[in-house]
Amino acid sequence: MLPTTCHVYFGSVIGATADGRRAWEPLSEGISPVQGSDRLGPTAVIKSSSKLDHARTGGTLLNLKFTPQVLEGDEGLEKLVQLVRSYFKLSGHHIQFNVVSAKTLRAAQGEPEKYRDLIVRVAGYSDYFCDLSEALQEEIITRTEHVAF
């Protein structure tokens, strides 16, 4: 059993759950809750995760998903560094960044509930991909396919 498939296996033996998840579907990854009407972006997720007493665990796993545009340019890079430093100031144990591909965005279009935590850069701001109109989602997917570093 591997960490990547465990949420799938464990979910497959559990019926519907009170977080709105349907029967036999995968569990959420990692330590941070993603449902709820107060999703407020990466800083909120980090603050939320920092409430765990990490030093008492043997290790925690926090995954943040971004599209490349959120991290674009020197500024985007600086922000990434600053997010990490802030989380660690709060004694977070681990963080990793999933910079998602256009393929993942397509999947998110098809199954928005599984990608509720996906943040994309829209224009001058970042927003949840699943909250955007289809037209805008298409635009971002096209953009993502062409982002190069």
Partner: peptide
């Protein structure tokens, strides 16, 4: 710079924690 290229590595650990 490597992280944002998006292939999933490296992950980041808080050495102090």
């Amino acid at each position: 710079r490597i992280i944002r290229k998006g292939w999933g590595q490296p992950s980041v650990f808080n050495a102090d924690t």
